[in-house]
């Protein structure tokens, strides 16, 4: 480790912009971006399953509020949702005195809430589309076996919907990664935040932003590769049989 650092330091000796300090900004930024995106996706995914089922419910009082939620969060820019939550919570009376403030004080949490609500709305609609397109035959077969509607949902509809939703969900993951760049607007030092810092300090737009663009590109490819792999595994039964 020690020798690696000295090596790196020597490599950077003639470089006034990419010093160890700025590189550590980028490294911290990478960690923050990955944490923020990963956490919001996981929580959003968990929330989206019941919401997607509820969205197809026969009861208006379940169906319509969920529809309104997804409509509003998908119909407005994430930036506005972030501003609303980041600046809005401050004006809730007495919030600074409550225990909640300990959590909301840090810009990370308001951003996480905004991102989670946003991705949950999109994921809900993706799942709903997948659930809706379940073939009638599968459901009828389950019924014929004497499965209850709940069991049919758990054993038949959800697993097959998950698979069908996979390609669209992969796009959503990439979308979230890119959307997370706006976290820098509320002082979070994510990847884009690090780039803005380096740019403002050295007036070096090409170095600062091209470098960060390359990191995002690598992350995007990693996600693409992961989902391709997953699709191949989970959707193998839909591929034409060979041999």
């Amino acid at each position: 480790m020690e020798s690696l650092l000295t090596w790196l330091e020597n490599q950077l000796a003639d470089n006034s912009i990419f010093t160890l300090q700025t590189l550590s900004h980028y490294a911290d930024g990478l960690t923050t971006t990955v944490q923020l995106v990963f956490l919001s996706l996981i929580i959003g995914l968990i929330a989206a399953v019941p919401l997607a089922i509820g969205r197809g419910s026969r009861h208006a009082w379940i169906k319509w509020p969920i529809f309104a939620y997804t409509y509003v969060f998908r119909g407005t820019p994430l930036l506005i949702q972030l501003y609303l939550i980041y600046y809005g919570v401050v004006f809730v009376d007495g919030i600074q005195e409550s225990w909640l403030w300990v959590i909301l004080e840090d810009p990370f949490i308001p951003a996480l809430i905004a991102f989670t609500l946003n991705t949950a709305a999109y994921t809900t609609e993706i799942f709903r589309g997948a659930i809706k397109s379940t073939s009638k035959g599968e459901i009828e077969a389950a019924r014929a076996y004497g499965m209850s509607p709940g069991l049919t949902m758990r054993r038949i509809i959800i697993p097959s919907a998950f698979r069908r939703a996979l390609p669209a969900y992969g796009n959503e993951v990439i979308f979230m990664l890119h959307a997370s760049a706006i976290a820098s607007v509320v002082t979070i030092m994510d990847l884009t935040g690090a780039a803005r810092f380096v740019y403002a300090r050295y007036y070096a737009p090409f170095e600062a932003f091209l470098f960060v663009a390359a990191i995002y590109l690598c992350l995007t490819f990693a996600i693409l590769y992961f989902f391709r792999h997953l699709e191949k595994k989970l959707l193998a039964h839909l591929q034409p049989q060979t041999g």
Binding site: H178, A179, A181, T192, F209, A213, T220
Partner: peptide, 9 residues
């Protein structure tokens, strides 16, 4: 690449 990064670039 994120829209915001392209825009700033």
């Amino acid at each position: 690449v994120p829209d915001l990064v392209l825009m700033m670039l």
